[in-house]
Amino acid sequence: MAKEVMKKAEMERIIATLSKEVLKEMGRKNLAIVGIRKRGAILAKRVAERIEGITKNEIPLGTLDITLYRDDLSAIGPQPVVHRTEIPFDLTGKNVLLVDDVLYTGRTIRAALDELIDFGRPEVIKLLVLIDRDNRELPIQPDFIGKRLMARKNEMVEVKLKESDAKEEVVIIKKK
C-alpha cells in the first residue's frame, strides 16, 4: 500500500523555496544545473526555470545518465537500458548544482560525481535533492534538501512527476 508523504502543492512550494536558496547561496554567475535521469533531470529543469524567472538569464542545463558509472552492474542481473548523457556546455569553472529526486544510499551521487568530473573541472558541485531519506552507505550529504524522510529498508520512496508519471506526489510503498 502506498502512503502519500508529499502533495503537489507542497512540492511546488518546496521547489520555489529551494530555487531561491540556490540563487542566494551559489549566485547567478557561472551557475549551471545538471539533473540525474530521469526524475532528477525533470526537477533540474524546474529549478532552472524558477531561477531564470528571477534572473532573466539562461542557465546552462545538462542531463546525466549514470548507468555506465554504476558500481552494481553485475549485481543487478540484466543490464539497465543506457540513455544519453547531455552536457552541452563546458563544465570547467562552473558552479554546478547537481539535482536528484531521492538521496538514499549515496551510490547514484557517487557515480554522478565521477561522471561529472570526466566532463571537466567544475569550481564547485553542490547537491540538491527533493527527498533526503536515511540509511546512507557512502559519506555523501546534500546541500539543499526539500524534505527529510525516514523509511524502512523494505520500503521505497517514489517521487512522481507529471512529465514521467502523469501525477505529482511523493509516496512510500512497501517492496514486494
Binding site: L73, D114, D118, G120
Partner: peptide
C-alpha cells in the same frame, strides 16, 4: 541500435572513456 545511440555520445567527450 537503441543502446548504441547512447554510446555514440561517449566518443564525443573530451574524456572518451567510461568505467563500465
Amino acid at each position: 541500435l537503441e543502446t548504441a545511440k547512447s554510446f555514440k555520445e561517449v566518443s564525443t567527450r573530451d574524456v572518451k572513456k567510461v568505467p563500465t
